[in-house]
């Protein structure tokens, strides 16, 4: 965070609150709310990075994370003795992150020529195909059953299964990746990516290789999502086709919309709100109607605050126009193919 003192102080206070939070909270709040918010936030962050800076809304981020989860399970310790390779711990994590990054690049190469809603569609198709593949394939995905009994490692006397340790691990990953995205956006690569988002033709004629930039952005998103996937499988202890279904992919999109895609913090704000609704809606309404409630909230946000909760904060504090925040698109309708999620900000 840069600029005037106020956001800096807000950020510091916020971070301090996150660090001190486990001292006051119950295990439920630490793990189910705290750690899970960070995990969902990291996966959504990979989408916000792609959509906010690259103008590419990818529905394949959850399955990218899912692939990393499967790799952790297949090459690590889980409960099915007939399947998988029990590599020494650590190796499966490296493989998982490599697989997620490679998958991200592959998705990027397939989708590189698509813009706007075509990008949504092709990545949605990839996500659905991945789900069916996972459900049908025995050899690697263990079909419908998936893998269970996966646990975070204990190392150097630090048991990552312990709620507080696991929370700090998730927090560390979340904060680091957040900082990574903010920093990446200011590199020449990040600036070029934002240029491509706003006007691919001009960037092309300026000599930038649009396709390579877009594919690399997908690779970075795959890397981020893969870390989320590793944490997610440790959190849930299992991974199965149910973890990579279309509904979950849409949830990640919802999180990004709720929080807003104008700034990376939106991913975490959205994840927190989504997670709170998911866990506490049951106390207000019949759980059976949970989806109606989340749908209405989502619709309200799309209708009344198109840049999500972060957009509200922006509107309240209009003094920052610095580089860590992608500039708002000013043209209300940048043509039919506009890939930008924030097109036409105000009704």
């Amino acid at each position: 965070m840069t600029g005037s003192l106020s956001p800096k102080w807000t950020g510091t206070a916020f971070l301090a609150a996150l660090v001190l939070f486990p001292l006051f909270a119950t295990p439920f709040w630490i793990v189910q709310i705290g750690a899970q918010t960070m995990i969902l936030g990291i996966i959504a962050l990979s989408l916000v990075w792609l959509a906010g800076y690259g103008g590419m809304v990818s529905m394949a981020q959850l399955v990218t994370a899912g692939l990393a989860s499967y790799v952790v399970a297949y090459f690590g310790v889980q409960s099915d003795p007939a399947l998988g390779l029990r590599l020494p711990w650590g190796l499966n994590i490296v493989l998982a992150i490599a697989a997620g990054t490679a998958f991200g690049i592959a998705v990027g190469m397939i989708a590189v020529r698509c813009f706007g809603i075509y990008m949504i569609m092709i990545t949605l198709a990839i996500a659905v195909a991945f789900f069916y593949l996972a459900r049908q394939n025995m050899g690697f995905f263990n079909a419908y059953n998936g893998f269970h009994g996966i646990r975070a490692p204990a190392l150097f006397g630090l048991n990552l299964r312990d709620p507080i340790a696991f929370y700090y691990l998730c927090l560390l990953c979340g904060v680091t990746l957040f900082g990574f995205v903010v920093a990446a956006a200011r590199t020449p690569f990040g600036l070029a990516l934002q240029g491509i988002r706003d006007n691919p033709r001009r960037m092309q004629s300026l000599g930038y290789n649009v396709a390579v930039h877009r594919v690399l952005a997908f690779g970075i998103a795959g890397f981020i999502a893969a870390i989320g996937g590793v944490l997610r499988v440790w959190y849930a202890g299992s991974v199965s086709p149910g973890s990579v279904g279309v509904g979950s992919s849409i949830s990640i999109l919802m999180i990004a919309i709720l929080g807003g895609m104008t700034h990376p913090i939106g991913a975490f704000v959205g994840a927190l709100l989504f997670n709170l609704i998911q866990n506490f809606a049951i106390d207000f309404i019949d759980r059976e109607r949970f989806n109606t409630m989340i749908g209405i909230i989502l619709l309200a946000i799309i209708l009344f605050m198109p840049s999500g909760l972060v957009g509200i904060a922006d509107r309240l504090r209009q003094d920052d126009k610095r580089g860590d925040r992608p500039p708002r698109q000013t043209a209300p309708n940048a043509g039919k193919k506009s890939p930008n999620i924030r097109e036409g900000n105000h009704p």
Binding site: I250, I257, L298
Partner: peptide, 23 residues
């Protein structure tokens, strides 16, 4: 209410489907 904003319209229809399917 949001003419010409294709992406936003698409997202809104996702929200509509979630609600309608549940109802």
């Amino acid at each position: 209410w949001m003419p010409g904003q294709e992406l936003r319209q698409t997202l809104a229809t996702i929200a509509v489907s979630v609600i309608a399917a549940d109802l």
